[in-house]
Design a protein around this nucleic acid. Structure first.
Length: 510
RNA sequence: GGUGCUAUCGUCUAGCGGUUAGGACAAAAGAUUCUCAAUCUUUAAACCGGGGUUCGAUUCCCCGUAGCACUACCA
C-alpha cells in the first residue's frame, strides 16, 4: 500500500532560522504540496543548553511570511494534530519507552564514562572512537555486572545510553538526490542516544522515533546529515522498522559568496546582506540581525530566489510563482554541489517582482516612507502617488529606494547638486530660464504635448540648444541632472509649482 | 588524520555520447534620451587534470587534485 506523503521541517530553536533552513523548509513544502501530502513542523529542542527563547515563534512567523504553510504540528490548530506532541522536550515518556526497547534487545547499552574521561581518551589516543574496538575497555554495562550497573545508577551517577553498532558491515543508504551511498559500519561510533543528565534523547534517537511515529515518508534535509544517515538506517533496523523507513534526500549546502565554507551569519554582517528571513533580536546577546522582510524584500522574491539556489528545471525559466514551483519542482533535479550565495541576484529578483506589482500596493507601501521624510501624503490624490511610484519603480530594486529617486516630486530643491551645476548650468542659463518663464506663465494647456509644442520650437528658433535649455530647466525642478522625462515632472508638479521652482532657481543661481 | 559528498563562464545553472556548450546575475561596449536610471542590442567569459570505454566524450568508468561536510552527552 502506498502511504500518504508526509514530510517534516524540524528545526532547533537555537536562534533565528537560517536562510539555508528556509530553503530546506521550502523544498519540503514544495514536495508535500506536489504530492498531495502533509507538511509537518516539529521542534527539535533536545539540547536544553542551546535553547533560545523566542526562536520557535520566530520560525512560525518566518514561514508564515513566506507563505510556507504548515499542515500539522507546531503553530497549527491543535484539532488538526494527530501525532503530537511536536516539541521533542514534551515527548520524554515516548523516548524512554524506545530507549528501553533498544536496551532490552541488546542494541544499546549504558555507559558511565564522563565527558572528562572521554576528553582525556581523545587526547591520549589519536583517533579514539567509542565503538566495537574500544567499548570493552570503557566503563559501561558491557564491562560491568548487572549489579554494578544498578549500583552506579542508584548512587545517582549520570550515564548515557549508547547505540551498539556492529562493525564491518556495509550500510546502504538510498538517497533520492545522490543515489546509493555506502559506508562501512566500522567508522560509525557508538552514538549517544540518551543522556540522563537532562533526561533527553539526542538528535539521532529522537529523530528516528519521531519520524516513525509521525509516519514521515520522506526526509528532506541538509547535506550535513548525510554522514549520519547510515546510523539512522541502522537505528530503523534495530527497531524493526525497515519496511516503513522514510526515503532520504540530502540537499546541497548554501555556501559563502566569497571564499569557501558554509554560509554563516557572519558572512551576512561582513558583506552586508541578511541571512535571516526576519529581523532577529537575540535576547541573550542583545544583538539585532537584519532580515529580508525588514530589508524590503517581497516574500515571493525570496522564495523564487531560494528555490533556484540548488534546483533548476530544464530550460531557461527564472520567474516562478509558488504554484509554479509546486508544479515543476522535483527532487531529482536538485543539484548535488553546494551553491554559493549570490546576493546580487537576490536583488534582481526583487526588482522583477516590484515591476510586476500593482502600483496601488506599492503606493501604500511608499506612504509610510513619505511620512518619515516629513511629507504629508494626504495632500496628494492617491492617483498622483500611484503615478509617481509607477514612473519610478523601474529604476529601483526596493520600495525603500524610491524616496531617493523621487523626493523632488514632493519637496522643492533646497540646494543644487554641484556636479550637475558645473556641467549643465551655463552662463546664459539664467537668461534662458527667464525667457522660458515668460512662455510658461502665459501657457494654459499644461499637457506634456502642449508644453513640448511650446518649448521645442522656441529653443529651435532661438538656436539655444535643446540640451542646454532642458538641462537647466531640469536643475530648476529637480536640483540635479537626474529623474524621469521632464514633462512627467511638470505634469506632476503643475504650473504654479513649476514656475515657482524656476523663479527660485534663477534667484539663487543668477 | 579518517569517512563521505561534490566538480560546466566570476556566480546560479541548462546539457543527460555527436551542440557554433544555451540562459540568467554581475562586468564591458553601443543604441536611445534634455539628465540619471531603466530598457534594448552586442561583447567578453566555462567543461579541474590524467587515464580508460567508445567510431566519438563536458556527458559513462577509474585514479589524481581541489572544495565542502561529518568525525560531541549540538542539531
Amino acid at each position: 500500500m502506498k502511504r500518504k506523503v508526509r514530510v517534516r521541517f524540524a528545526p532547533s530553536p537555537t536562534g533565528a532560522l537560517h536562510i539555508g533552513g528556509v530553503r530546506t523548509a521550502l523544498y519540503n513544502y514544495l514536495f508535500a504540496r506536489q504530492n498531495g501530502g502533509d507538511m509537518l513542523l516539529r521542534i527539535e529542542d533536545t539540547d536544553s543548553a542551546r535553547f533560545v527563547p523566542g526562536a520557535e515563534e520566530y520560525i512560525i512567523e518566518a514561514l508564515r511570511w513566506l507563505h510556507i504553510e504548515i499542515d500539522e504540528g507546531i503553530g497549527v490548530d491543535s484539532s488538526l494534530n494527530s501525532h503530537g506532541p511536536y516539541r521533542q522536550s514534551e515527548r520524554r515518556d515516548i523516548y524512554h519507552q524506545y530507549v528501553k526497547q533498544l536496551l532490552d534487545s541488546g542494541n544499546a547499552y549504558i555507559a558511565f564514562d564522563t565527558p572528562q574521561e572521554l576528553e582525556q581518551k581523545r587526547n591520549e589516543i589519536k583517533n579514539f572512537q567509542y565503538d566495537a574496538s574500544t567499548r570493552m575497555q570503557m566503563r559501561n554495562s558491557l564491562t560491568m555486572t548487572a549489579q554494578e550497573v544498578k549500583n552506579h545508577i542508584d548512587s545517582g551517577e549520570q550515564y548515557v545510553v549508547r547505540f551498539k553498532v556492529n562493525p564491518d558491515e556495509d550500510v546502504h543508504v538510498h538517497d533520492l538526490i545522490r543515489g546509493e551511498v555506502v559506508i562501512n559500519s566500522s567508522i560509525i561510533d557508538d552514538k549517544v542516544l540518551y543522556k540522563s543528565a537532562d533526561d533527553l534523547p539526542t538528535y539521532h534517537l529522537a529523530n528516528i522515533v519521531d519520524d516513525h511515529l509521525m509516519e514521515i515518508t520522506h526526509v528532506i534535509r541538509g547535506e550535513e546529515w548525510l554522514p549520519s544517515a547510515p546510523l539512522h538506517v541502522l537505528l530503523y533496523r534495530a527497531f524493526g522498522w525497515d519496511d516503513t523507513m522514510p526515503q532520504f534526500a540530502h540537499l546541497p549546502l548554501l555556501l559563502k559568496p566569497d571564499g569557501n565554507g558554509k554560509l554563516s551569519k557572519r558572512d551576512g554582517d561582513r558583506l552586508g546582506f541578511p541571512v535571516f528571513p526576519l529581523e532577529f533580536h537575540d535576547q541573550k546577546t542583545g544583538t539585532v540581525s537584519s532580515g529580508y522582510r525588514e530589508s524590503g524584500y517581497y516574500p515571493e522574491a525570496v522564495i523564487n530566489f531560494l528555490a533556484l539556489l540548488g534546483w533548476h528545471a530544464t530550460g531557461d525559466k527564472e520567474i516562478y510563482s509558488m504554484q509554479e514551483l509546486i508544479n515543476d519542482f522535483s527532487l531529482d533535479r536538485v543539484s548535488k554541489a553546494g551553491a554559493k550565495f549570490d546576493f546580487e541576484k537576490g536583488k534582481w529578483f526583487n526588482h522583477q517582482y516590484l515591476q510586476m506589482r500593482d502600483n496601488k500596493l506599492i503606493a501604500q507601501e511608499f506612504i509610510p516612507i513619505l511620512k518619515e521624510h516629513g511629507v504629508n501624503p494626504e495632500i496628494y490624490p492617491a492617483e498622483t502617488i500611484e503615478h509617481i511610484v509607477g514612473l519610478m519603480k523601474e529604476r529601483v530594486n526596493f520600495v525603500s529606494e524610491l524616496w531617493e529617486q523621487c523626493n523632488f516630486f514632493f519637496v522643492a530643491p533646497t540646494e543644487y547638486d554641484e556636479k550637475s551645476m558645473k556641467k549643465r548650468w551655463k552662463e546664459d542659463s539664467p537668461k534662458h530660464m527667464q525667457e522660458l518663464l515668460a512662455l510658461l506663465k502665459q501657457q494654459d494647456d499644461w499637457s506634456a504635448e502642449a508644453l513640448d509644442n511650446l518649448i521645442m520650437p522656441w529653443i529651435a528658433e532661438k538656436e539655444y540648444g535643446v540640451g542646454i535649455v532642458m538641462n537647466a530647466f531640469r536643475i530648476c525642478l529637480v536640483g540635479a541632472a537626474r529623474g524621469p522625462h521632464i514633462w512627467e515632472i511638470t505634469d506632476v508638479l503643475g504650473k504654479e509649482e513649476t514656475i515657482r521652482r524656476v523663479e527660485e532657481c534663477i534667484r539663487r543661481n543668477a
